[in-house]
Amino acid sequence: MSVPATGLAAEFEQIYRAHVQQVTAYFARRTADPQTVADLTADTFVQAITSFATFDPARGSPRGWLFAIARRVFAQYCERTSRGRNVVERLAGRRELDMDEAAELVVRIDAERAGRALFDGMAALAQSDREVIELVDIAGLDRKEAAAALGISLGALRIRLFRARGKLRKVVGEDNG
C-alpha cells in the first residue's frame, strides 16, 4: 500500500499530473521518435523535481516554469545531437519503451503532426519569432507565462509576438500565392 505524498512532494505531483501531457506534446511536435519524446519529457521533470524547492510562484506559473525547463532540455538535446555523438553513446542508459508505451507515444506524435507541419512553415522565421509563436499560439501559455519562460518582459513579449505573427502571415501568404 502506497503512502500519499505530502508537502512539496504532493505539490510537485499535482504540477506533474496537470502538465505532463502538455510537456510531452511540446516534444512530440519536435521529434517523431517516441523514445526521444519519452526521454526528453523525463529529463524535463527530473530537472524540475531537483529544482522544485527553489520554484517561486510569484515569478510565474508552474506551466511557464516547466516550459522554460523543457526549452533548455531540448536545446541541450539538440546540442548533443549536433555534435554527432555515436549511436552507442546515445543509447547508453536508455530505458527501452514497452509496446504499450511506444504505441501511446506514436499516437501522441501523430496527433502533433499538424504542429510539426506548422514548424516546417515557420522555418523561415528567426528563432526568437518561432519561440514566441510556439509558446503562446501552439502551447497555449498566456503572455505572462511565455514572457517568464523566455526571460523577457511582458511588453517585449507583446511586441515580439505582434511582429512574429505578422512575419508568419507574410510567409504563409507567400507560400500560398
Rank of each mutant, 00 (worst) to 15 (best):
P57F: 00
T54H: 08
R59V: 10
S82N: 11
G166M: 03
G177F: 05
Y77F: 09
A10Q: 14
V107T: 12
G121R: 14
S153H: 08
V171C: 03
A92T: 13
R83N: 10
Q35H: 02
S2L: 10
L150Y: 02
L161T: 03
A28F: 05
T44N: 02
S51L: 03
I15M: 04
F45H: 04
K144V: 15
Y77G: 01
V132Y: 01
I69K: 01
I49M: 07
V46G: 07
R169A: 12
V106I: 12
T81C: 07
Q21D: 12
D137P: 02
V87C: 09
Q22Y: 12
G7S: 08
L105R: 02
R113Y: 15
A156S: 14
A92R: 13
D33K: 14
S153M: 11
L125P: 02
T50D: 15
D33L: 15
E131W: 03
A164T: 00
E79V: 09
T31K: 05
R94P: 02
V3S: 12
S2C: 09
F45S: 06
L125M: 06
A123N: 09
D110L: 08
E96C: 10
R71D: 03
E174M: 07
A114G: 13
W65R: 05
A70T: 09
S51E: 14
E13Y: 02
N176L: 15
A92S: 12
R163D: 14
A147H: 00
E89V: 13
A28H: 02
G64E: 06
P62M: 03
A70N: 07
A147V: 01
K144C: 15
R113S: 14
A114P: 15
W65Q: 04
D56Q: 08
E145A: 13
R130C: 04
E96I: 09
A68D: 04
E174P: 00
R29F: 04
A9Y: 11
T50R: 09
G84S: 03
I152Y: 07
G84I: 01
S82Y: 08
L97T: 10
A38H: 07
V3P: 01
D142T: 02
R71Q: 08
N176V: 14
D142R: 07
V171F: 05
G115V: 01
A147C: 02
Q47S: 08
D120P: 00
M122C: 06
E104K: 14
P62R: 05
L40T: 03
I15P: 02
I109H: 14
V136M: 01
T44I: 04
I49K: 05
G93F: 00
